[in-house]
Simulated assay, not measured.
Amino acid sequence: SEESKIASAVTKALALQPAVTIAIGSQQIKEGELIIQYSTTGNIAHNNILALLVQTRATTKIKAGENNGATLASYNVVRSMVSVPAKVAGSCTLTIPAGFISNNYSIVLLAQNTGSLKITGTVKKSI
């Protein structure tokens, strides 16, 4: 019922410049883990970097109940997450889930203020 207010709020938010800019560097898969190098610019004081391993699309076959036999699709499912103190240059290590197929996953890094919990910067990259 408030579509115009929502559209206005989204437009306003998209026009804001992030306080922190994050760049994803090299990625290495080693012994069931994904090691991600990153760099930041901007005000990283009192920020953490949240690293997420996101499965782009997942399906679940329902085996019982009223939906027995149906297949459900889910999108952007977080499979692994870690939080580390923000640095100008740093790394994050995420656990790789069973059945991992890299072309169905993305990495998302968020800078988050530790006091207000406000997201101050983001970046997403396909693996």
Rank of each mutant, 00 (worst) to 15 (best):
E31M: 09
N67D: 15
S91E: 06
S8F: 03
A9Y: 01
K30V: 10
A64Q: 10
V82P: 05
L52T: 07
A9D: 09
E31H: 11
K63M: 15
A13F: 08
A98Y: 10
I24W: 03
I62Y: 02
I62K: 04
K87R: 13
I22G: 03
K63A: 15
T40V: 05
K30M: 08
T60D: 09
A45Y: 05
K87H: 09
T93N: 05
I49C: 04
A58R: 13
G42K: 02
Q37N: 12
K61H: 12
G25P: 07
A64Y: 12
Q37E: 11
L72W: 09
I36C: 00
G32I: 07
I44G: 06
N43P: 02
G32W: 00
T41H: 06
S102A: 15
A58N: 12
H46K: 15
L16A: 12
N103E: 15
V20W: 06
S102M: 11
I44A: 03
Y38L: 06
A51D: 01
V20N: 07
T11W: 09
I29P: 01
A9G: 06
L14N: 09
A64G: 10
K61W: 09
V84I: 12
K30T: 11
S8M: 07
K30I: 06
S102E: 13
H46E: 12
P85S: 15
T60W: 02
N103A: 11
V108Q: 09
P97D: 05
I35W: 02
K12I: 08
A13E: 08
I101W: 04
I107T: 08
V82C: 03
K12T: 14
A23G: 10
V108R: 10
G99I: 04
Y75M: 14
S80R: 07
S8V: 10
Y105V: 04
Q17K: 14
Y105R: 05
C92G: 05
G32P: 00
T93E: 05
S83R: 11
T59Q: 13
V84D: 06
T21Q: 00
G32M: 01
M81G: 10
S26P: 00
I24R: 03
I44K: 00
S80A: 15
E33R: 08
I22N: 01
I44Y: 01
A64L: 13
S74C: 08
L94G: 00
G65L: 01
S8K: 14
T93A: 07
T95C: 06
T21I: 11
A73I: 13
T93C: 04
T59L: 07
K87W: 04
N76G: 07
G32V: 02
T93S: 07
I44L: 05
S106T: 11
T21P: 00
T56D: 15
A23T: 14
I96C: 06
N48S: 14
A7Q: 08
I96R: 06
V108M: 13
V88T: 12
T41L: 08
Y105H: 00
C92K: 03
A89Y: 04
A15G: 07
N43K: 11
I49V: 14
S8H: 07
A13M: 10
T21V: 09
